[in-house]
Structures are given as structure tokens and as C-alpha cells.
């Protein structure tokens, strides 16, 4: 019995010692927090190169084994090396998405692609001569790429305040913002419709129009360019 009490006292003493040690450490060590489960990758992790054409480029330059020593982030859950994966299409799906409902957004865009395909095939069969037939693009992905390329603005207007008056000053636009505006305009045009028309239908028509360099979106782009041209006199406010 005495032995046991002895042990307990002994244990208490140890514990006090230990706890003192522990308290000291928490007080003195830095306050930076790290989580037991990291929520992101450290910045020396590189972005993965997983698409077939990018990989082929690496193999051509013999960079592959050199790069393989570095750590890479895993591809995101929407990225694959499949031939059906297209970053631009993915971007459009993300723009269509509301409240994180990706499956619905994806089905809408795919439905729009189906509509484009149907319309184009109908046109293809209505065309009489081989030259006319060869002019018709049947791939909806190509149509989308063309539509976005045609609706990308080259200039933008930015409000700059000088002497109490806000001027709309034209200036160059970054590649990223121009892509963003093109997709936004296409979707705004598609959503500007009667209630009886479904989104995929209208979106398909807008895509075909824009790919053909006609329609609301291309007109909007040209309007912006015209306005930039008209406001040329203010251009110097960008740097003065």
C-alpha cells in the first residue's frame, strides 16, 4: 500500500515537472498555427502537366525525367487527359453553374451542344453542292471555340476620374479578361429570352450566330470597339 502511495506522489511530482515544461514551451514557441490536416499544397508543388499534347512536348524536349524529381499537385477532380476534356468547355460550364450545381450546368451545356449538332447536321443535309457542305462545321466544340474567339473584345473602357469628371478611357485588355467578357456576354445573350424557350436552345443559337460573326454578342463587341474609338481623345488619361 505504502509503495502505491509513494508511486502516486512520485507520479504527481513528475507530472508537475512535465506540465511546467509543457507550459513553458507553449508560451515561448511561436504562435503560428499549423493544422494537422493541411488544406492546401505548399507552393513548391508544381501544377500538373497531364494533357497528351503537353506531355508529348515534354518528351520531345527531354524534360520529362528532369521534371519527375519535383513534386506535382494532383489534377483537379474535373480535369482528365481524355480527348473529350477541353479547358474552355469546362470554363463555360463553370460560368453556367449556379450554387455549385455542376451536374446540372454540365447537362445544360451538353444539351446545347446537342442542339448545335442537330442544327448543323440539318444544314449539312440541306446543302446541295459539296463546296457548301465542306464549309459547314459539324463539331460543336469547334463552334464554341469560334464563337468565343469572335466575341472576344480587343479593347476595354475603364472609368478614370480627372478633375471631378469621370472619363471612360479606352485601353488594352488582358487575355484573361477578354475571355471572361466573351463568355459572360454569350451567356447574358442566351439568358435574355422568352420564358417558353429553354436555355440550351437559345444558347445553341447564340453560339451559331457568334461563330458566324453575326448576332447580339458580336454586335456588343463592335459597339464597345466603336465607343473606344470615339473616346480616343481621353486615352492620355491612362498615364497622365
Amino acid at each position: 500500500m505504502r509503495n502505491l502511495t509513494n508511486k502516486i506522489i512520485f507520479f504527481n511530482r513528475c507530472q508537475s515537472q512535465l506540465s511546467r515544461c509543457a507550459f513553458n514551451s507553449t508560451a515561448k514557441t511561436t504562435q503560428t498555427r499549423f493544422y494537422s490536416r493541411p488544406t492546401s499544397f505548399p507552393d513548391y508543388y508544381q501544377n500538373p502537366i497531364f494533357r497528351k499534347e503537353d506531355q508529348a512536348k515534354l518528351i520531345e524536349n527531354n524534360d520529362l525525367s528532369k521534371l519527375a524529381t519535383t513534386p506535382f499537385r494532383p489534377p483537379a477532380s474535373y480535369e482528365t487527359s481524355s480527348v473529350y476534356h477541353d479547358p474552355i468547355v469546362n470554363k463555360v460550364i463553370n460560368h453556367v453553374m449556379e450554387d455549385g450545381k455542376k451536374q446540372l450546368a454540365r447537362s445544360l451545356v451538353e444539351k446545347a451542344f446537342e442542339n448545335v449538332k442537330r442544327i448543323q447536321i440539318e444544314r449539312y443535309h440541306l446543302a446541295t453542292t459539296p463546296e457548301e457542305k465542306s464549309k459547314i462545321i459539324l463539331s460543336p466544340k469547334d463552334i464554341l471555340h469560334r464563337a468565343i474567339e469572335n466575341s472576344k473584345p480587343l479593347l476595354q473602357l475603364s472609368p478614370i476620374k480627372r478633375g471631378g469628371i469621370t472619363y471612360q478611357v479606352p485601353g488594352p485588355i488582358t487575355e484573361k479578361r477578354s475571355l471572361f467578357l466573351a463568355i459572360k456576354w454569350l451567356l447574358e445573350a442566351a439568358n435574355d429570352k422568352d420564358r417558353t424557350v429553354h436555355f440550351p436552345e437559345q444558347f445553341a443559337w447564340e453560339l451559331l450566330d457568334a461563330a458566324n460573326n453575326t448576332g447580339k454578342v458580336v454586335k456588343r463587341k463592335q459597339d464597345l470597339h466603336r465607343q473606344c474609338e470615339a473616346n480616343r481623345a481621353y486615352a492620355h488619361y491612362r498615364w497622365q
Binding site: Y35, R37, P38, T39, S40, F41, Y45, P48, I49, F50, Q55, L58, I59, L64, S65, L67, A68, P71, F72, R73, P74, P75, S81
Partner: peptide
């Protein structure tokens, strides 16, 4: 071995250890 390196560069062999942040 070449494919192994390609898979590493593609990030397929990296475990995605990220968890929901509290």
C-alpha cells in the same frame, strides 16, 4: 519507367491529402 515519370509529372501519383478546413 518512362510512363512512371510521365505519371508523376501528370500528378497522378501525388496523394491529395487536403481535407475540409475546420
Amino acid at each position: 519507367k518512362d510512363m512512371l515519370e510521365a505519371m508523376q509529372v501528370a500528378g497522378l501519383l501525388t496523394r491529395d491529402h487536403r481535407r475540409r478546413e475546420r
